[in-house]
Design a protein around this nucleic acid. Structure first.
Lengths: 192, 192
DNA sequence: CCAAAGGTAGACAGATCTGTCTACAGATTG
DNA sequence: CAATCTGTAGACAGATCTGTCTACCTTTGG
């Protein structure tokens, strides 16, 4: 091997994607330069461009991977709790688990849209698609719980979730999760 | 005058700040270069650096101006409607007016935080301060309406508002405002 | 065995970005 | 009048960013 790192060395592509995922999420897409990703993943520049012909390709790979990873984690946690407790506000608890991670810096997709200008872009489309899938999932949950007007309920939940994430990113205050709890309970109460 | 534009030409500083405000909001802070601001405001480079010693100074001026402008507009609209209708969900109508503006691209302060990396920055602090003032104002509104637990109510409202803004920026769908309406009505209903 | 695949190291090009500097021109004011 | 303030026009420096290119090395499959 040109640069011996033992048999367990991960392939260059994996190291690049891991480093990029960390930096893109932590520092932002525009703020993270190719050179830094190359340096921190310990890879040659040509290896980088062999696997990702452009920075945009790397961003797309990052967003797709994060979408897969986050969605399956979120669905798993919510389904498990819903099945045992049957209450919609277990979602607040799942979100709180996410917020507890020390590197939490909001939702990568919200941040991506915030960073995207007014013109449309591949990144923006992926983010919008991610949120559409999340809304779809919430509608199936509402249906499973037998709630009335599941589509409207899902949109209400989306507003609560996005607000909770953004608010938590801005303030870092745990009271945000309490507010999330109260709001979900409020929309779960039957109309008088 | 060096570059005659008639008696009504605005001072260079104003033209710079107006152009920068448009571009920073529309395209993002990092995506907007000094050179473009200089070109589009029709000003010489030295005039720019006379008024704003660094790009950061211009960003700070932009955020402070936008904070003043947006907050006074929002408070004015909400106060007027609250006084005549006495319902908290007039806030959804005020937000919808904002969303109708053709250049709407979310909240400049949320976008700023999304663009700021994990390290703290002057821009981030201004954004956090802006949201703290908004939360304070909402608490006074809740108090004025005689609602129970105004502090918790204000935090609930913040989550709803942030979620509505982000959701609207992401989807552009008017149903988001309906969800905002429903949510405010839900937390306004007395607990059973 | 040897060719292909995948890797390293690093120079280089070209664009762009922030910020400085010179030279000059019109207006205001002491 | 002369100084000062505010402005224009544009060259320039230095950093950084994306992306290309050359040259060489090692492992593996046919």
């Amino acid at each position: 091997m040109a640069h011996p790192q033992g048999k367990t060395a991960k392939p260059a592509r994996d190291r690049i994607l891991e480093t990029a995922s960390r930096l893109f999420y932590q520092e932002g897409l525009r703020a993270t330069g190719i050179d830094r990703i190359i340096a921190e993943s310990g890879v040659a520049k040509m290896s980088f461009y062999r696997h990702f012909p452009s920075k945009t390709d790397l961003i797309v790979a990052f967003l797709n991977a994060r979408h897969q990873r986050w969605m399956s984690w979120f669905k798993g946690e919510v389904d498990r709790r819903i099945d045992s407790e049957g209450r919609l506000d277990v979602i607040a608890e799942v979100l709180e688990e996410w917020f507890q991670q020390p590197d939490f810096r909001g939702c990568a997709f919200i941040n991506t849209v915030a960073e995207s200008g007014s013109s449309s872009s591949r990144e923006r489309e992926i983010a919008v698609q991610h949120k559409a899938e999340l809304a779809d999932y919430l509608e199936t949950v509402a249906r499973k719980l037998g709630l009335p007007e599941p589509a409207a309920m899902a949109e209400d939940m989306m507003v609560i979730i996005e607000g909770t994430i953004v608010r938590r990113q801005m303030t870092g205050d745990r009271r945000v999760t309490w507010a999330c709890h109260r709001l979900i309970q409020a929309i779960s109460r039957p109309y008088t």
